[in-house]
Every structure is written in structure tokens, then in C-alpha cells.
Computed example of a mutant assay.
Amino acid sequence: MIAYNPNYARYFGLLFLLMVVFVIILIIVYDNKRTKKKREEIQRKIMMLDNNSPKPLSIQNDEEKLPYRKKYLLTKNECWFYKNLKEIADKYGYAVLAKIRFADLVEVNGEAGKSEYMKYFGKIKAKHIDFILCKKENLYPELLIELNDNSHKKEDRIKRDEFVKKIADKVGYKMIFVNGTGDLEDIVTKALEIKSENNNDPPTDVN
């Protein structure tokens, strides 16, 4: 006759308990999966109904609304200046570009780490240069020109101009600020370091 061993009883009891727990876990997992599938199916049906149902008029109006209109590229003052600058550019073999984004002229270099790229790009991305004189054959910028008006007298605008000029100087661009007065051809040719063909000198007495 085999003697009763209480250790065996405890062992089989524990094993049975673990099996019961395992079965319960399987049932819960299976039930959760079924519930999740049912929930996803219900959500899909709801989305299909939403897509097929007419949208409220206010939403339709927002989607169709395009509150924009054309605007002139140049102000009247800028347009007048452009015409004068264009005559000078044609005379000396240059092309004129207007309202060029500063970020298309300079870029953030390796001095700034990757984590600082957006910081320094943000300083230039919304800035523009009024006019640029370029070589005709390749549109390489030779002279950056800012036309100063009354807005340039404001403190924030002065700081902006100083900042842009520092960058232009650092990367090697020639840049001038003009107010539309004075001899524009003389100003431009001096900045480009070319001899002016403008014959405004008083005639000499040959007698």
C-alpha cells in the first residue's frame, strides 16, 4: 500500500491551480480580441455613415472658402526705382531681380549644429531683399540693394537691416541701402567697383 504523501498533494494542487489561472487568462485574451474586433467593425461602419452623410453647411463653406486676392509685387515707389535700376543694369550688362528671399541667397552652415539649424534658419526664412543685380549669364548675385522708405527708420527695421548686412558681409555679398535720391548710377557703379559711364561732369574749357 502506497503511503499518503502530503507534499504530492500540495504539488498537484498548485499545478491544478496554475492550469486554471492559465485557462482563465486565455479566455480573457480571446474575449478581448473579439471585443476589439467588434469595436473596430462598429467604428468602420460609423465612419462610412459619416462619409456618406451630407456635411453641415458651415463645414462646407470653410472647405470652399479661399479668402485671397492678387496683389502687386512692387509698391509704386519700388516700381519707379526698378525702372531706373533696370536702365542702369541694361547699360552695364546686368539683370535685375526683385523681392528675393534671403534664405535663397544664404544658408545655415556647419558652424551651427543640427540641433541649432532651425533656430538660425528661422532668423532668415521670412526676410527678403528688395533688388539684386546679377550677372546675366548665370544670375549670380553681384549687388544686393535695399530701398529704404519710412519703415526703415523704425527701431526693429534698423536692427533687421543691420542683421542682414552683417550676414551679407560675412558670406561675401556686396550690399547697399539707398533711399531713391542722389545719382543712382554713380552709387551702383561705385558699389560694383566699375567705372561709371555717366557723363555728368561739367564740360572742360578747351580754350
Results as ranks from 00 to 15, higher is better:
residue 138 N to W: 07
residue 131 F to R: 00
residue 38 K to Y: 05
residue 40 E to C: 14
residue 155 E to D: 11
residue 176 I to Y: 03
residue 106 V to C: 07
residue 82 Y to P: 00
residue 4 Y to M: 12
residue 157 R to C: 09
residue 105 L to M: 04
residue 25 I to N: 13
residue 126 A to E: 01
residue 156 D to T: 11
residue 77 N to P: 03
residue 66 L to E: 14
residue 168 A to L: 01
residue 150 N to K: 15
residue 34 R to T: 10
residue 92 Y to F: 08
residue 72 Y to H: 15
residue 110 G to V: 12
residue 118 M to V: 08
residue 206 V to C: 10
residue 161 D to P: 03
residue 52 N to M: 07
residue 126 A to S: 14
residue 133 L to D: 09
residue 114 K to P: 11
residue 169 D to Y: 09
residue 162 E to R: 11
residue 44 R to G: 12
residue 94 Y to P: 05
residue 158 I to G: 02
residue 87 E to A: 14
residue 117 Y to G: 01
residue 39 R to N: 09
residue 130 D to K: 03
residue 74 L to I: 02
residue 44 R to Q: 15
residue 148 N to Q: 12
residue 176 I to Q: 02
residue 161 D to C: 04
residue 194 I to N: 02
residue 205 D to C: 10
residue 96 V to S: 00
residue 158 I to H: 04
residue 72 Y to W: 13
residue 192 L to K: 00
residue 127 K to Q: 02
residue 53 S to M: 09
residue 108 V to P: 02
residue 110 G to E: 12
residue 104 D to G: 08
residue 158 I to C: 01
residue 144 L to A: 07
residue 83 K to T: 12
residue 171 V to W: 04
residue 176 I to C: 04
residue 36 K to C: 06
residue 89 A to N: 00
residue 69 R to I: 10
residue 194 I to L: 07
residue 203 P to Y: 11
residue 63 E to F: 13
residue 106 V to R: 05
residue 70 K to R: 14
residue 45 K to G: 12
residue 40 E to S: 15
residue 172 G to D: 08
residue 124 I to V: 10
residue 36 K to Y: 12
residue 190 K to P: 07
residue 84 N to A: 08
residue 76 K to Y: 12
residue 119 K to M: 03
residue 137 E to L: 12
residue 180 G to Y: 02
residue 194 I to H: 04
residue 111 E to I: 03
residue 100 I to K: 11
residue 115 S to P: 05
residue 196 S to T: 14
residue 100 I to T: 13
residue 133 L to K: 07
residue 94 Y to F: 14
residue 6 P to F: 07
residue 106 V to T: 09
residue 139 L to N: 06
residue 149 D to R: 14
residue 181 T to W: 08
residue 10 R to C: 07
residue 121 F to Y: 08
residue 61 N to P: 03
residue 83 K to G: 05
residue 68 Y to P: 05
residue 79 C to P: 01
residue 53 S to D: 06
residue 23 V to F: 12
residue 151 S to G: 06
residue 146 E to A: 04
residue 118 M to D: 10
residue 120 Y to L: 00
residue 93 G to S: 07
residue 68 Y to I: 15
residue 63 E to N: 11
residue 148 N to C: 06
residue 29 V to W: 05
residue 34 R to Q: 11
residue 130 D to M: 05
residue 19 M to D: 13
residue 21 V to H: 10
residue 10 R to I: 09
residue 108 V to R: 02
